[in-house]
Design a protein around this nucleic acid. Structure first.
Lengths: 335, 335
DNA sequence: TATTAGCACTGATGAAGAATAAGTGCTAAA
DNA sequence: TTTAGCACTTATTCTTCATCAGTGCTAATA
């Protein structure tokens, strides 16, 4: 890959992203001051290397998945925001009343709006939370509600119907034991310590300790699972992309977007901290789309923001936008 | 509309629902022992009355919206469930461990599954609930969580950041006043009594009573608004209907299904107790679909179940299915 | 008088062919 | 190494033509 091939590939990818039409040799002559024949030779090389594809023998070239990959890894430069885009995002951060998580949601709403892609926010608030207290509210009729509350103000509740052989007082007593022992424990460790430290103790004090234990175990598990802020915007925005002018393709994606495991698949293996691009088969959600993802950590809230678009998505712009948001979030840490 | 016209219209509607093809005169000859010419004459009459339509001058007939309306109001008989369908639903009701609201959800999942329509459950649990207690949890840092809890076990929580001139103790004191005065009040009346009865009292005891009052007002409002069980199944199932083989039609509906006001529009004016059918323009959601809706009340939980399909939906079957579910729900009242 | 056979007519649908456009690869010359 | 030139390929669009499923109307029939 010499300099010229790099430039050529870059231009081809970017042209295709803009025009959605296979790129022919003629269109590039002027830009490179070369004849179409030379360009054709170079294109043939790039095709052999696997970076370009043809739809049929005499069509122009389209970037392959490997082509996009090479482009993103080696050629692309994130784009500076336009004034208009920046203004819209600034407005959000200017409003200091806004909770940070709401600000993130709004940013992603805007990104979906201005780009016609689908955006996702997945905030897991439990990460840095520690247990503040667990309350048992007695409803009578053998029903109780367990309210789990953390120092960061996240609260989750779950109702239980008790077997008739269980006394509500025993449940309350257990909650008091837990409060004494586990307050301040990171919420993710609670299940563990519940098993190892609390269970042996309630064993000695509570008759039906197994059943009672399970109530609390369930309540905490529920907390960890439910206490996330899932925010999806523009599920149908992506349908405006020309690749979804086909009924079966459109239905296929619509189904996947409605699937229960949608979020999981989008988030799969999100361990890296930088902006990451998952092109086609590189993501687990759908091999015809690209997912661009960024993790964030702010004041003990951690999460992921992601943009889903066609493989032919505007990489430069999205990466630019996400970088900008990340910057702004950073500057508001510990407001 | 004589007997023969009624029968004819009925057969035409039902044939069109099954085949999705305009119905011609020949197809009906055998069934009525009449020549196609006679049928044509009758069809021309039905068209003039507004019950049938033609796509073009020489095409077969398709029911008009008025035709469907007449069919549903006068001709249709709800269908007896098939053994298979009944079995699937019975399984759900046989499981007496299931909370009723979960049972309803599962029923509607199955209806969507077996019919390829979209189904909706909108349960409002607050209706018959009375206030059991409101708790204030102090998180420090001027943050508190208000937990509203009803006798039926519905719990909702909301976090507030207090202005620095407000003392947490005053908030807690107010919660105690509310608990004393309003326990047992139907949850929908709480806001009202809060304003009329509680506000004058805290005015005398709390310094920043306006701000504190607003906290509780917000908390209860939130409860009433959020404490509903919204369950939508098969948003994309309806896309399998042949009317959505067209990209623009498909996108149009997909957009409406993702719209925030989707549920409101589906539920609009749901005051009738029987099964109601809203054909095309009769519903506020989308003039190209039909919504079939039924209200339910069980043990203080009230809600609506609805099925959304094309105007050409299988009215007999859906009404039959909803009737069956209603029957079964009735028989489980106060389990 | 209600029904029917017969016929001319209409519009949708699909296949076949022709023209055009946009591109290619390859060869030979600069 | 680059380029001009040419033969070739495929998609796309347009026209034409035949077929098909249906209609409305008229005149004859039971």
């Amino acid at each position: 890959m010499d300099e010229r091939k790099n430039n050529l590939l870059k231009v081809i990818v970017e042209t295709y992203i803009k025009t959605v039409r296979p790129v022919g040799s003629k269109a590039l002559c002027d830009m490179f001051n070369l004849s179409s024949a030379t360009i054709r030779n170079e294109m043939a090389d790039l095709e052999e290397m696997g970076y370009l594809e043809k739809n049929h023998i005499s069509s122009g070239r389209v970037p392959s998945e490997a082509g996009y990959r090479y482009y993103v890894s080696n050629l692309m430069e994130p784009e500076k925001l336009t004034g208009g885009d920046m203004l819209k995002l600034q407005k959000i951060f200017a409003n200091t009343d806004l909770e940070l998580s709401d600000a993130i949601n709004k940013c992603m709403d805007i990104i979906s709006e201005i780009t016609n892609y689908t955006s996702v926010v997945l905030g897991k608030s439990s990460e840095d939370n520690t247990l503040l207290q667990i309350n048992i509210i007695d409803l009578g009729n053998n029903q109780v509600v367990a309210v789990v509350c953390t120092d960061k103000g996240n609260v989750e509740n779950k109702m239980f119907t008790l077997d008739s052989n269980i006394n509500v007082k025993e449940v309350i007593k257990t909650s008091e034991i837990i409060n004494k022992m586990l307050v301040g424990t990171p919420i993710n460790d609670v299940s563990n310590r519940l098993e190892l430290e609390v269970k042996p103790i309630i064993k000695t004090q509570i008759r039906q300790y197994e059943t009672v234990y399970n109530i609390f175990y369930d309540a905490f598990n529920d907390f960890v699972n439910n206490n996330s802020n899932i925010h999806v915007t523009g599920k149908t925005k992506i349908f405006e992309q020309p690749e979804y002018n086909d009924v079966s393709e459109l239905k296929r994606l619509a189904n996947k977007l409605e699937d229960k495991s949608f979020i999981e698949k989008v988030e799969e293996n999100s361990d890296e901290d930088e902006i990451k691009v998952y092109i086609g088969k590189e993501n687990k959600f759908d091999s015809n789309v690209t997912i661009i993802r960024k993790k964030y950590h702010i004041n003990g809230e951690e999460g992921t923001i992601a943009v889903i678009g066609p493989k032919r998505m505007d990489y430069q712009r999205i990466v630019g936008l996400l970088e900008y948001i990340d910057e702004k979030l950073d500057s508001r840490k510990d407001k």
